[in-house]
């Protein structure tokens, strides 16, 4: 696997030539990108573009077929356990034990992450995320929005320096979705945390993200701030930019050129 020889100094997440192939599918085909400290970056792309596969490789639950990942200056493929206590993750597709109460779930994960004074940290998060009335209730009895807030509390238990979020507001109504986004923004403001999120919600991306990485068929097809992308594609909102890319209104040559440009900018 290639070494990262010249890491970007301020980059907290560095991905170089990352690949994942299954027997007949190349899910991720050599992507490179970097996320700076304290930035919020979105991974965008249609279904099957490689977003979740990329996040899974960053988290160490999926072994890449090639490439290098460096998080918080550590080689994630070799020293995963040095990094995992300092990062966290949430996804609507991964649950917590349903029969345990919210409080029990959070206490268990606080211990798993080695949080000092788990009880006070759980109380602190319950206050911040308005979970007080839910603490004694079984996780399985909660609504989708309440579960999302609890999962977010789990993700914040260890005061992560890096947060990886897979569709953090999927299936939430606009009110709860807005509250979750506000919570994430507050946490980032207070902690300086670096966030990488996969999302299909373009409003969320425009509101929260400093940088957007556009994926299609396992390749990075473009990258830039939301404002820069809107200007580049001559569109009024990110939904239209997304459709341009997802429907391949950007040609293959452009895709390769964009990938080369991004790779060059990293080296």
């Amino acid at each position: 696997m290639p070494e990262i020889v010249n890491p970007v100094p301020a980059a907290v997440i560095e991905v170089r030539d990352l690949r994942k192939s299954y027997r007949q599918v190349d899910a991720v085909r050599g992507i490179s990108f970097a996320v700076g400290r304290g930035a919020t970056t979105a991974l965008l792309g249609g279904n099957g573009a490689g977003k979740t596969t990329t996040l899974s490789m960053l988290l160490g639950v999926l072994t890449p077929s090639g490439g290098a990942i460096r998080i918080l200056s550590e080689d994630m493929l070799r020293h995963r356990y040095r990094v995992l206590p300092r990062i966290n993750f949430t996804s609507p597709y991964v649950d917590l034990p349903k029969r345990l109460t919210v409080s029990e779930n959070l206490r268990v994960y606080a211990r798993l992450y080695g949080v000092e004074n788990p009880r006070s940290r759980v109380d602190e998060l319950a206050e911040e995320l308005d979970l007080g009335e839910l603490l004694k209730r079984p996780y399985g009895n909660l609504s989708a929005g309440q579960r999302t807030r609890v999962s977010l509390a789990k993700a914040l238990l260890n005061r992560p320096e890096v947060l990886l979020l897979d569709e953090p507001t999927a299936s939430l109504d606009p009110d709860v979705g807005d509250r979750v986004r506000t919570l994430l923004e507050d946490y980032q403001r207070k902690s300086g945390c670096t966030m990488l999120l996969a999302s299909h919600n373009m409003g969320e991306v425009e509101r929260m993200c400093d940088e957007v990485i556009m994926l299609r068929a396992g390749l990075v097809v473009d990258q830039g701030s939301p404002a820069a992308l809107l200007e580049r594609y001559g569109r009024g909102n990110m939904d239209e930019v997304f459709l341009d890319i997802a429907r391949e209104r950007v040609g293959a040559e452009d895709t390769i050129a964009a990938s080369d440009r991004i790779a060059r900018s990293l080296s």
Partner: peptide, 17 residues
């Protein structure tokens, strides 16, 4: 139990070895 509750993902991204 971890599989039934779809909790394996959370466990394997935690520092648990």
């Amino acid at each position: 139990e971890e599989m039934y509750s779809r909790n394996l993902g959370n466990l394997f991204v935690s520092p648990l070895r």
